Lab assay of single mutants.
Amino acid sequence: DESNKPILLPNESQSFERSVQLLDQIPSYDTHKIAVLYVGEGQSNSELAILSNEHGSYRYTEFLTGLGRLIELKDCQPDKVYLGGLDVCGEDGQFTYCWHDDIMQAVFHIATLMPTKDVDKHRCDKKRHLGNDFVSIVYNDSGEDFKLGTIKGQFNFVHVIVTPLDYECNLVSLQCRKDMEGLVDTSVAKIVSDRNLPFVARQMALHANMASQVHHSRSNPTDIYPSKWIARLRHIKRLRQRICEEAAYSNPSLPLVHPPSHSKAPAQTPAEPTPGYEVGQRKRLISSVEDFTE
């Protein structure tokens, strides 16, 4: 099969070098950035008060330690540790928490760990991170309901609301924008112990962030949302095809390698009803078989 044979790379090609550099910018793992907010007593309706908090309760602090690993920003190499735009020179604080497994990295933009500057009256330095995160974990210690939209931002799609209760338990629920209701189930609340709260809140936030990324990708319907490693695979396959075309153009005697095509017509299947918005969006999480067989 010609399409699977190794090909020689061009010795000097600026377009090839640019493509390789672009490939280096696509990590081999999925990345997520999640905002974390603490809401104190009497702050449920005040964005400024929430963003001005420099610490929270003892249970909130224990919750943070379970979310991930504490890292010092100045020691991080952005090409190895995903920071979601946090500055490593102290502009966004000294520490944050991050978490990773074999296929993804997540960083938490924690408002109480970011510096509260006197010259920044409206807390814009914090909002440029927190307001651009799709998902926020809100530790609501106010005793009042927290409403979506209290923290203004164009991309605040989903809130994971943590409400501490007695007996070391917590109520965990989801809020989302109306255009996200087909992807996020907000109907079920959970009672979770303090011990298990970081794991549950983190998983709910990661799932909500993946759904938000799919939702946000609708602005470019021709580019369905893939995982990062599938995006790398697609980029490599496009690069291979372009090299083959350039080689055939410079030397017409060489065969032009095309991806294999299936001449056999697909079997006719009964027509199915058109899937609704929710089903269609969830299918976009699934990769096409052509990603692996071309």
Rank of each mutant, 00 (worst) to 15 (best):
D1V: 12
E2Y: 08
S3L: 07
P10G: 10
N11L: 10
N11V: 11
F16W: 13
R18N: 13
S19Y: 15
S19E: 15
Q21R: 05
Q21A: 11
S28F: 12
T31D: 03
K33C: 14
V36T: 01
Y38G: 01
G40P: 02
E41K: 05
G42N: 09
S44Q: 12
S44V: 11
S46H: 06
N53T: 02
S57G: 03
S57N: 03
S57M: 01
Y58L: 07
T61M: 11
T61D: 07
E62C: 07
F63R: 00
L64F: 05
G66K: 03
R69E: 15
I71Q: 09
I71W: 04
D79H: 06
G84A: 12
G84V: 03
G85S: 11
G85F: 03
E91L: 11
G93K: 15
Y97D: 03
Y97L: 11
H100W: 12
D101V: 00
D101L: 00
D102Q: 12
I103H: 07
I103F: 13
I103K: 02
Q105D: 09
Q105N: 06
A106T: 14
F108N: 01
A111E: 03
T112Q: 02
T112S: 03
M114R: 04
M114V: 04
P115S: 05
K117H: 12
H122S: 14
C124K: 15
D125I: 08
K126S: 05
K127T: 12
R128N: 06
N132Y: 07
N132G: 15
F134W: 06
I137P: 00
Y139R: 00
Y139T: 00
Y139N: 00
D141Q: 02
S142I: 01
S142E: 01
D145Q: 08
F146G: 00
L148E: 15
G149C: 08
G149T: 11
G149F: 03
I151E: 03
I151D: 03
F157W: 15
H159C: 13
V162G: 00
T163M: 04
L165A: 02
C169S: 13
C169D: 13
N170P: 00
L171R: 05
V172N: 00
L174C: 09
C176K: 02
C176S: 04
C176W: 03
C176D: 00
S187E: 07
S187H: 06
V188T: 11
A189C: 13
R195P: 05
L197R: 00
F199N: 02
R202E: 01
M204V: 04
A205P: 00
M210E: 01
A211T: 04
S212H: 02
H215T: 06
R218I: 10
P221N: 05
T222A: 09
Y225D: 13
P226W: 02
P226M: 05
A231W: 10
A231P: 12
H235T: 13
R238C: 13
I243C: 07
C244V: 08
E245S: 05
P252N: 10
P255F: 06
L256E: 15
V257R: 12
K264D: 15
A265W: 08
P266H: 09
P270T: 12
P270I: 10
A271M: 13
E272I: 09
T274R: 10
T274G: 10
P275S: 09
G276T: 13
E278A: 09
G280K: 07
R282L: 06
R284D: 13
L285I: 09
V289T: 12
F292L: 14
E294D: 12
E294K: 07
